[in-house]
Design a protein around this nucleic acid. Sequence first.
DNA 1: AGCGAGACTGAGAACCGTTGTCAAACCGAC
DNA 2: GTCGGTTTGACAACGGTTCTCAGTCTCGCT
Lengths: 139, 139
Amino acid sequence: MTSTERGGPDRPTVRPTRQRRAVAAALDAFDDFRSAQEIHDLISRQGDSVGLATVYRTLSTLADAGEVDMLRTEEGEAIWRRCSGTHHHHLVCRACGATVEVEGPAVEQWADTVAAEHGFAAISHTLEVFGTCRSCSTR
Amino acid sequence: MTSTERGGPDRPTVRPTRQRRAVAAALDAFDDFRSAQEIHDLISRQGDSVGLATVYRTLSTLADAGEVDMLRTEEGEAIWRRCSGTHHHHLVCRACGATVEVEGPAVEQWADTVAAEHGFAAISHTLEVFGTCRSCSTR
DNA sequence: AGCGAGACTGAGAACCGTTGTCAAACCGAC
DNA sequence: GTCGGTTTGACAACGGTTCTCAGTCTCGCT
Ligand SMILES: [Zn+2]
Ligand SMILES: [Zn+2]
Ligand SMILES: [Zn+2]
Ligand SMILES: [Zn+2]
């Protein structure tokens, strides 16, 4: 037995490295969804140096842990954002990217109901709302 | 004036070619969402020969015309399906891909309301529900 | 402090879905 | 049949993402 963990399954340890801190800080600096490339650029501009592959690896890990949300642009590019841990959806400005987390109990129920009506089980869903935010509309 | 169309703006003509018919037929043969590659493969298997680039071009045209829906897999790959012309969403089986078109007036309204509350205009939204269909659940 | 096992990283290649290029083929109107 | 514009296909190019793997770093242990 080489692991120092007792009991439970052999989950690999996750170490707090300079690179992971840099990615976390970049995520905190942004308020909206950003591509891995943009996050990588911000880190570089601040003098730090983190490989792009490491940015991807870190984002994936964080997404798996539920600490960031990942979604896809219309063009298929992955974009990430630090989000709250509870289930929510997004209201995103097409022009400036401003993002608001929103909840929709009615939608959650609708999804469950319509799925059950058709005999579907183990339901999950994706829902994003796009629009033009106030300041972008009046500009 | 070289166009035979009278009046209106000079929209380019769209010709019914063998290739476009083949893509349309392949779409009809499928009941669920498929990638361009899969559609191309089906056409090939049936003896027809249509370039992959042409499949992409045709699918894009059909999508612009609202005759097919395009959405993205979790991995970012584009998949297409011939769908009804009215606004709807999808209930998709994770295991077999079986797809049901569903409507959700309550959801449409929720999206408009929550967007208005936050001052967003020109709203659009994406919503897909994933699950395991009856026959896949009992298998 | 020194060590060892294993986690982590970076540079670049590889991957893969998608789009661009452009000469040849095609279609339809005349 | 002729002519201009449309469409096509083979292939290159592109862009985001993942893989590779040798070198580096962490951390528990002594
Ligand atoms: Zn979120
Ligand atoms: Zn939800
Ligand atoms: Zn549809
Ligand atoms: Zn809708």
